[in-house]
Amino acid sequence: MTENGSGRLLEVADVVSGYGEMEILHGVTLHVDRGEIVSLIGPNGAGKSTVIKTIFGLVPAWSGQVVFDGEPITALPPEQIVRRGISYVPQVENIFPSLTVEENLEMGAYLREDDFRPQMERIYQMFPEIADRRRTPAGKLSGGMRQMVAFGRAMMLEPQMLLLDEPSAGLAPLVVELIFETVVNINRQAGVTILMVEQNARKALEISHRGYVLVDGRNRVEGTGRELLANEEIGRLFLGG
């Protein structure tokens, strides 16, 4: 959100990618500035999750470039990207179910050589609900708490940026509310920049600084969260209004 050039944290330029022979993204261009929450919305099958997976190196980019913090990361595998300060929270299976909450967080810190306890304590302070269940296997928790464990695991490396793949998917309405509040907290309190894909477009835009609408593997519209919410066409197509 700063005015100078160093404000740009992630830059995705004309990225084409897909699975096997099938091209899913036909040229996606977007950027995320330091401190922002940016949402990627759009209809099912538009390739929203593929954008995040391509940024994180889980799906190889066929062409185009991904630049993070001034360095190209396009051809790097996830285990390298994670070391550079991007963490990824998958949509499903984003915890280790038979490991306890605490062990899940420890695994998030697997690459750390230094003492990760202070960061773990900060995460427990941010998510007091899971702090009371440190010794519970994560798979035994409710959907909302599992999501917090997933966020916590991803934050153990103190990333600059979090990639969230549909964090509210499959959760009860009340819990969805809580998850979005949590995303805002992570962004404000921990100062983590966030790029998230969301099906729940209206809620996502309400908490986002900016958003992109992705249709058929291309980004169609860009704007601030408020602009997109006010856009009639988008409202009709994706916001159920």
Binding site: Y88, E93, S98, M107, L111
Partner: peptide, 11 residues
């Protein structure tokens, strides 16, 4: 438990 998540955690 979860090979994909283990990989993105750097294991």
């Amino acid at each position: 438990d979860n090979p994909d998540l283990a990989r993105v955690s750097g294991i």
